[in-house]
């Protein structure tokens, strides 16, 4: 409840029309609707914790990364590159490239928000692929019995109403909690997991990337094409370059190829 207390003290004009009680109601509604995200994050973060220790980080360092960064793909990639001996600068650059997608998400998210700079600073920290989708498509006014906030009718509906800041903070904070607690659990259990189990965890990162990619690729030709180009170019570049830089270059080039080849086809994304 810490976020709620602090946000209710500092809110500016956007939340002026909400009473403290309404803010609390929206915050707890956000917590409830964000719970599935937290449950999904927990095992992924656990895998991150295990892999980070295997890459030579201490438990303290590992938890600190999850607390300060809060980005699944970026953190997994960092640990992956670390165990390959990549220098910090390559890891940071690779992170920047992967995180550019957040820029796009936040830009479209901002259409549903009316916030002052402090609220933007708080909400921004919690923007992930999953919280963005949940917040952007969810209808906080929907009755609890409506069940899935992401049902098709909701997704089709034009989203014009501004979201209550406390609702967004609720969704974001429970997701963050799931991520940090999962990381902590990973550092606790890393030692007791059998070797075979730990080896199989290497696939989790790739499964996560694939699960993010497939639904979009099935819908839009440009997505599948650009991803295929990214993989092919990365394979080519990684024969001459360290893997961190190969990822960065392949991403930049493949997205440019996509703009040239599909142009208008990208706009429907």
């Amino acid at each position: 409840m810490e976020l709620y207390t602090s946000s209710s003290k500092v809110v500016g004009k956007a939340a002026r029309d909400l009473t403290r009680g309404q803010q609390g109601w929206y915050f707890s509604k956000g917590l409830r609707q964000g719970l599935p995200i937290a449950l999904g994050y927990f095992p992924s973060a656990l895998a991150f914790g295990v892999m980070a220790l295997a890459a030579g980080l201490t438990p303290k360092q590992t938890i600190l990364i999850s607390v300060l960064v809060f980005s699944g793909a970026g953190q997994f990639m960092a640990v992956n590159l670390l165990s390959g001996g990549a220098p910090p600068l390559a890891i940071i650059t690779a992170n920047l490239v992967v995180n550019l997608r957040y820029f796009v998400m936040s830009a479209s998210f901002s259409r549903r928000l009316k916030v002052n700079w402090l609220q933007a600073a708080l909400i921004g920290f919690g923007v992930t692929d999953e919280t963005f989708v949940m917040n952007y498509l969810a209808d906080p006014e929907a009755a609890e019995s409506d069940g899935n906030p992401l049902d098709d009718s909701g997704a089709q509906k034009e989203k014009t109403a501004f979201l209550p800041v406390s609702y967004v903070l609720g969704v974001n904070s429970i997701s963050y909690a799931g991520w940090v607690l999962g990381t902590y659990a990973g550092t606790l259990f890393a030692g007791v997991l059998p070797d075979s189990f730990r080896a199989a965890m290497g696939i989790i990162l790739y499964a996560m990337f694939i699960a993010l990619l497939i639904p979009a690729a099935a819908e839009t030709l440009a997505v599948g094409g650009v991803a295929a180009a990214g993989g092919a170019l990365c394979w080519l570049f990684s024969r001459y370059l360290p893997s961190g830089w190969a990822v960065v270059l392949a991403t930049t080039a493949a997205a440019a190829v996509g703009v040239i080849l599909w142009g208008k086809g990208v706009d429907e994304l």
């Binding site: 793909a73 990639m77 650009v226 180009a229 990214g230 930049t252 997205a255």
Partner: peptide, 15 residues
């Protein structure tokens, strides 16, 4: 358009 495609290009290169 380029920004929209970057995440998918990155996913392909990461996979």
């Amino acid at each position: 358009r380029w920004l929209k495609l970057v995440p998918y290009a990155a996913l392909g290169a990461l996979i």
